[in-house]
């Protein structure tokens, strides 16, 4: 259980490297976790050949949701959108390096849902995006 609050998670929560907004941006999407009010927005810049050249997240929420957003954004810069589309639940768990129960999993996956809804140009960030 102590693992849940590994130092790296608390560090990314307290001192995130990629918090902020991008203006201008090519893709921007935001959504909430209705259970706890966590909120995440992700902005992307994408080159003409479909590579993520820059990314930021903004919002508020628990350590798990904010740290996973920071780690996720860090991991996609320089990657092609096609690869971003393939990210799933396991990719986030690998980034965090922890096991999560069903409730906290929702916190961890919020940023990925937001990212994928933005990349696919969807109106809503559904759970099916992260399976």
């Amino acid at each position: 259980m102590d693992d849940l609050y590994r130092e790296v998670i608390i560090e990314h929560y307290k001192n995130p490297s990629y918090r902020g907004k991008l203006d201008p941006h090519d893709i921007s999407f935001a959504d909430n976790n209705p259970l706890c009010g966590d909120h995440i927005q992700i902005d992307l810049r994408v080159s003409t050949d479909g590579i993520v050249t820059d990314a930021r997240f903004d919002g508020h929420g628990c350590a798990i949701s904010q740290a996973s957003a920071d780690l996720l954004v860090e991991s996609i810069i320089g990657k092609p959108l096609e690869e971003v589309k393939k990210l799933n639940k396991q990719s986030i768990l690998d980034l965090l390096g922890i096991e999560l129960g069903p409730v906290r999993l929702k916190c961890a996956l919020l940023s990925l849902k937001v990212l994928k809804a933005g990349v696919y140009g969807l109106g809503e960030a559904g759970d099916d995006l992260v399976e």
């Binding site: 259980m1 628990c62 350590a63 906290r104």
Partner: peptide
């Protein structure tokens, strides 16, 4: 510190408290 984190860490000591908007979002 987010309430979720508070509740989760308290749970490790067996302390059950609730975190969230407690079905009263407008009040929050």
């Amino acid at each position: 510190i987010h309430p979720h984190d508070v509740a989760q860490i308290l749970d490790r000591d067996g302390i059950a408290v609730r975190a969230g908007h407690h079905c009263a979002q407008p009040l929050h």
